[in-house]
Design a binder for these strands. Structure first.
Length: 457
DNA sequence: CACTGGAGCCAC
DNA sequence: AAACGTGGCTCCAGTG
């Protein structure tokens, strides 16, 4: 693989230099708070363990595993629950062992297992995040590495620690870790995200008119519309959660090569695990049953879905999705055929990918890569401008479609107008194929990375 | 003791 | 035909 245009080369050359500046700046850490959180969580873990080792389940555990018994081993927990006790497992791993993950353990109604899930959550928080970040903190600053040479899609990665996967979805965990990331003295943290970046890039890559229309008109919302279809809701009454799951379990999976059986399985699973309801509080199973959909179906893939199943319904939604975006449906097949013939493909940002790729990688890579390249180009301009103008604000991190900066109070307005211009105007002049508007969302915090609030951009 | 792969979980 | 992608990190279990 090599960068085939000067522009692609320049992007990664300058990108490397800019990210080096980002690494050097680093993010300020509230070390005292981090240390006390480590202690606090450590105490919680100890308490949980001492409670659990009093339990009858632990007796069974020791009976089976003897001196080797290890509370940290899922491998050991599986047979205790599913052989020694009466619980039944739902699924197997690819090596044929019974799965002992969060999803399968949530089916087990047992106080010990509830404690186990909480214990695992706290251990992950403690070892990967709290202690991992503490270990990498030097003189109150964290300097994660940002790589441009490791990712197949020509995205970036981050390590030591991985700045790109700090928890946020679970508010309890997110708060404990993110509140240890703080602005410098007299600074505020500012995080700027591109809105719906990957969808916009997909629209431009496939040159699908309907996709471009969605990407160009902020009153349109593809995730809302597909949520309405998937869960049989009126378009103007789609609950937020339903939209969220349609986005992540239907729209993106479809764009990246999944199919109805897998989408149906995951969308169906969300109904119970997230307790989905209509906007007037009717449970979604009941809502769907009223419309003649009362079970999931086998989701076999090799068998035709049966009438009355959710699988069959999602199969029909999939057909409508392809009809909605006909040029996408057609061009992705041509795209794959052309690659099979010549063995390479080009990204819109000038990278040529040559080598062995799966079909789904061919759908994903030309979207994921260029989406990041828009962000990287913007980051380069922002870093350079801050330096040129001798400003005190610093870019301190990057998460695929967002830029995190530590901005001096007095420079806030200047910084905001800079990023807005670069990310929404200048980048479109640099790459004329950006034919849809780009929008950003801005959040800031005076205190820490958890307490951020939206700012009018 | 060093290393590897699987399984799992965090992010976009 | 076949079935969503890209990563990093931790722990366990197995190997030699």
């Amino acid at each position: 693989m090599k960068a085939t245009t000067g522009q692609a080369y320049q992007l990664f050359h300058q990108g490397t230099q800019a990210l080096a500046e980002v690494e050097r700046a680093g993010m300020r850490i509230d070390v005292a708070r981090l240390d006390s959180t480590v202690k606090e969580v450590g105490n919680q873990i100890e308490e949980l363990i001492s409670g659990m080792t009093q339990s009858g389940v632990w007796k069974l555990w020791k009976k089976r595993w003897g001196v080797k018994a290890n509370l940290g081993s899922r491998y050991q927990l599986g047979p205790v629950l599913f052989e020694d006790m009466d619980y039944t497992s739902t699924s197997k791993t690819k090596t044929g062992r019974t799965q002992v993950n969060e999803e399968s353990l949530e089916q087990v109604d047992n106080p010990f297992v509830k404690d186990y899930l909480r214990l695992e959550k706290l251990k992950k928080l403690q070892s990967t995040y709290l202690k991992g970040i503490r270990r990498e903190t030097v003189n109150g600053f964290l300097h994660p590495s940002f790589n441009l040479h490791l990712v197949k899609s020509f995205r970036s990665s981050a390590d030591s620690p991985n700045f790109q996967n700090i928890p946020i979805r679970d508010p309890e965990v997110g708060k404990l870790i993110r509140s240890c990331f703080i602005p410098r003295e007299d600074h505020v943290l500012v995080e700027v995200d591109y809105s719906a970046l990957e969808f916009r890039v997909a629209a431009m890559h496939w040159r699908d008119e309907a996709m471009i229309a969605y990407a160009s008109d902020s009153t349109l919302d593809v995730h809302r519309d597909m949520a309405a279809e998937c869960y049989c809701l009126p378009v103007d009454r789609v609950p937020k959660k339903c939209r969220f799951f349609a986005k992540n379990q239907f729209v993106f999976p479809q764009l990246y090569g999944s199919f109805y059986a897998n989408c149906a399985r995951s969308l169906w699973g969300m109904i119970s695990s997230a307790e989905l309801t209509t906007d007037d509080g009717v449970g979604l199973f009941e809502h769907l049953a009223d419309r003649g959909i009362d079970r999931l179906g086998s989701c076999d893939g090799s068998r035709r879905p049966e009438k009355g199943t959710f699988e069959k319904h999602i199969m029909e939604v999939e057909t409508r999705f392809r009809d909605k975006f006909p040029q996408w449906a057609k061009r992705k097949e041509q795209w794959w055929k052309k690659y099979r013939k010549c063995g390479w493909f080009d990204m819109m940002t000038g990278f040529r990918c040559q080598g062995v790729y799966s079909r789904n990688q061919l759908y994903n890579i030309p979207i994921q890569g260029p989406a990041f390249h828009l962000l990287l180009w913007s980051l380069i301009q922002v870093v350079r401008t801050l330096k040129r103008d001798k400003m005190r604000s610093r870019v301190v991190g990057q998460i695929h479609d967002s830029i995190v900066a530590d901005v001096h109070r007095d420079e806030l307005n200047e910084y905001l107008s800079l990023v807005k211009r670069v990310m929404t105007v200048d980048v479109r002049e640099h790459w004329p194929w950006v034919v849809v508007p780009l929008e950003i969302e801005v959040e800031k915090s005076e205190t820490n990375w958890f307490e951020k609030v939206a700012v009018e951009a």
